[in-house]
Design a protein around this nucleic acid. Structure first.
Lengths: 146, 146
DNA sequence: TTATATTAGTTGCATAACTAACTATATGTC
DNA sequence: GACATATAGTTAGTTATGCAACTAATATAA
């Protein structure tokens, strides 16, 4: 086992847990403090629907990097909150299209603001160039690992 | 909401889910294919104990960025597998020290090799400089968010 | 057109995460 | 020494994750 390999192995524990978890926890806390009773996982679904409403569950799998079972349960929970509804596709009756309800609309601006504020705090002192490198590295890591 | 802020908000969905999840899933799959019946979360505990045996649960919280309840259950499960045992500290009876058993020893080399191989594949085509920038950015993001 | 394979989604099972409330031990102050 | 406070760990309750096995609908091939 070369020294270089060992260093890379160590990177795993840095990547998996530290920064991403800290940001996620902070954002969740900020939601709760603002009286927004949604989880960040639920928010990540709403986020994609605000960008494009009426996505299929499969498309939400692709965009949020979750498996089908996870999306089924997440949509179950968001549906219970009254924020989305499933509407069967007319073209393909296997497909559920997920639509935002009116109740979800007021959440958009508040959660976007909190997410942006949380990320701005998290990214304090980090340059645009560094952010671009992180994004680029993550993209390649994802392609290498999927 | 400035354009710059929006771009930062978007980074959140990249950070939380894509690359880290893909690597974690790949490593879990590699463990399973090799007949190693442990989860990557359990492995992350063993990893720290192989570096320094007999850590307290609180110290494992600090090193793995989990809360106390999570560590309690993780140690429960690893203990059930017979890989670690809790031994009450003689200096402070509130403290459980977690020690590896003999059964955990043979796992070390196999799992290190798989982790290194998985990370080498994940980091294919990524330079040392880029890795250093990612580590440095993560460190600062963590400090900003904790 | 009938049989086979593929795709979308659900359900059961197990693990793991966080919060909040709890017990037990240790420490600090008067 | 007695009381308040802090710390280590556990437990209960809820949400989320992944895999595997399943149903239903569609697409493909014979």
């Amino acid at each position: 086992m070369s020294n270089n390999q060992f260093k890379r192995g160590e990177l795993y524990s840095v990547i998996n847990g530290m920064a991403t978890t800290a940001v996620a926890r902070r954002l969740q806390k900020n939601f709760r403090n603002a009286g927004l009773e949604i989880t960040i996982e639920q928010w990540s679904i709403l986020y994609h629907l605000w960008k494009e409403d009426g996505l299929s569950q499969q498309e939400l799998c692709n965009r949020t990097f979750r498996d089908k079972a996870s999306i089924t349960r997440l949509i179950d929970n968001i549906e219970k909150l009254g924020l989305v509804e499933r509407i069967a596709s007319k073209e393909d009756r296997r497909v559920n299209l997920v639509y935002l309800t009116d109740a979800a609309k007021p959440l958009q601006e508040a959660t976007y603001n909190l997410a942006n504020q949380t990320m701005n705090e998290a990214l304090q002192g980090i340059s645009k160039e560094e952010i671009e490198i992180v994004k680029s590295v993550f993209q390649r890591v994802y392609e290498n690992s999927k």
